[in-house]
Write a protein that binds this DNA or RNA. Structure first.
Length: 478
DNA sequence: ATGTCC
């Protein structure tokens, strides 16, 4: 394998059709299997690629690895539903609480919190929305701005300003050509309506965590309203069946179009089309609808968790949002003075201080980049560094799987899972599931060591740590 | 990821 070393934690691996930039320390790089590079090689056969990279959490996915950043010029580029991935708009959200972890020591209190959260956020039923008053059409068209005003009642940062719910998010509305919505069957509308504000399964979660501020970033932490021992709410969810349906349908229609155009690729699940085609445009427009859905879905989960906190701890508890951002999408961004389509599949944008693309609230510091660990290990709140420019400001999206779901179920016992959650010990992580059997494939042993992943991102000067988030409670769907 | 093959 031909390789150029670009300095700490950054290698450029040269393959037949182009190069993949890999951001990983030596230890993580050694875990990258041959199939990951084969996938890069196949993805790089998509014409006129401008940039292709892996973050340290990269692992094999359908058509394209999770942990990919792939860039084309808007003018002559390609869009790929496979590089966006199936959970369009999947992402992270953190809400702050005024509580210190010492106020959540009581196990009974934590159990009450779990129960209260589960009354508002269905984790076992598939489509049991508690928001029957919310019109889905407004949500997919206008995102957070499509919600009834009562759901955006969170106070503004400045007197007379707009709700933090609209200012402390990556984007409150993704605008697009709504005529594309006419292609969506009634059944899909109905299913997605029934899922608004629900968590979903797999790696999705609600966690209650406590913060450890990083010494080097105390000023930014203070600016963001973070303090040592602070209890925060971290949410990981996506666009549910709405995005899954679009991913499935467009993979099929792109495949037919590729056949028609005579485009071939050795990767059977990798589909793509020029941006400037009817197929490309229709997919992009509907992808925006899924981004709108996903942002609203996480917002409603956050809204519900606040109600649960108030039920258990009193009405005075308020939980303002810190930030909401995604790690699965393709969006137009300006890089090198050129409009480009940046695909991120399991990759998180992390802009540094002063970058023009930051939301107003975070222009000065850079925006928070929210990185989940696995159940039982820490998550991280990071901030982009100037060195991130070389990777189009992409960092990791989590620990990254090291074992498939099937392999995990075969390799790890319930007892080992319990040990990883420190069940029965002082710092035990409380889980909503009575039996861990149903979520065994989500055990910490299924994931890479998140600290090695973070070390790689910091080592490559892509971002720095603002706070480490230690889990107190983990709520998972099935 | 997804009422995971109506």
């Amino acid at each position: 394998m031909k390789m150029i070393e670009h300095g700490n934690c950054h290698r450029e691996v040269q393959l037949g059709a182009g190069s993949v930039h890999v951001f990983a320390n030596d230890e993580v790089f050694a875990t990258f299997g041959q199939r990951v590079f084969e996938m890069a090689e196949h993805n790089l056969r998509i014409p006129r690629n401008v940039y292709f990279s892996y973050t340290p959490d990269a692992h094999v996915g359908v058509g394209t690895c999770i942990g990919t950043t792939a860039v084309w010029n808007m003018r002559d580029g390609f869009v790929s539903p496979s590089i966006v991935g199936s959970d369009i708009g999947c992402g992270m959200r953190v809400h702050l609480t005024p509580l210190h972890r010492d106020e959540l020591k009581d196990k009974q209190l934590k159990r009450e919190l779990i129960q209260a959260i589960e009354t508002y956020v269905p984790t076992t039923e598939r489509g049991q929305t508690s928001y029957t008053d919310i019109p889905l059409e407004e949500v997919v068209k206008y995102g957070l701005n499509g919600l009834p005003a009562a759901y955006l009642a969170e106070p503004a940062d400045e007197p007379g300003g707009v709700s933090r719910s609209l200012t402390h998010v990556e984007k409150h509305t993704f605008a697009f050509d709504h005529t594309a919505l006419a292609h969506i069957p009634a059944k899909s509308w109905q299913r997605a309506w029934g899922q608004l504000g629900t968590l979903g399964g797999g790696n999705h979660f609600i966690e209650i965590q406590s913060l450890e501020i990083a010494d080097d970033n105390r000023e930014i932490a203070q600016e963001w309203g973070l303090f040592d021992g602070q209890v925060v709410i971290m949410i990981h969810s996506g666009s549910r069946a709405w995005g899954a349906m679009l991913g499935r349908d467009y993979t099929k229609s792109f495949k037919e179009a590729m056949f028609k155009w005579g485009i071939e690729n050795p990767e059977p699940s990798l589909v793509y089309a020029p941006i400037d085609t009817e197929e490309g445009q229709r997919y992009l427009n509907l992808m925006y609808s899924a981004l709108n859905y996903a942002v609203v879905n996480r917002h409603l989960i956050g809204y519900a968790v606040e109600r649960a906190f108030q039920d258990v701890l009193g009405k005075a508890v308020s939980t303002p949002v810190l930030y909401d951002l995604m790690h699965n999408y393709a969006l137009e961004e300006y890089h090198r003075n050129t409009p480009m389509l940046v695909h991120r599949k399991g990759a998180t944008k992390a802009l540094p201080a002063g970058h023009f693309q930051n939301p107003k609230a975070y222009k000065k510091t850079g925006h928070p980049a929210l990185i989940p660990g696995s159940m039982g290990t820490s998550s991280y709140i990071m901030v982009g560094a100037a060195g991130g420019a070389k990777n189009f400001y992409s960092i990791c999206h989590g620990a990254g799987r090291i074992r498939s779901r099937k392999a995990t179920k075969e390799a790890v016992t319930i007892n080992e899972f319990e040990q990883a959650l420190r069940i029965g010990q002082e710092d035990e992580i409380l889980v909503n599931h009575r039996s861990l059997e149903a979520i065994l494939d989500e055990c910490p042993q299924a994931y890479k060591d998140v600290d090695q992943i973070i070390d790689s991102v910091v080592g490559a000067k892509l971002a720095t740590v603002v706070a480490k988030c230690k889990p107190l409670i983990a709520i998972k769907g099935v």
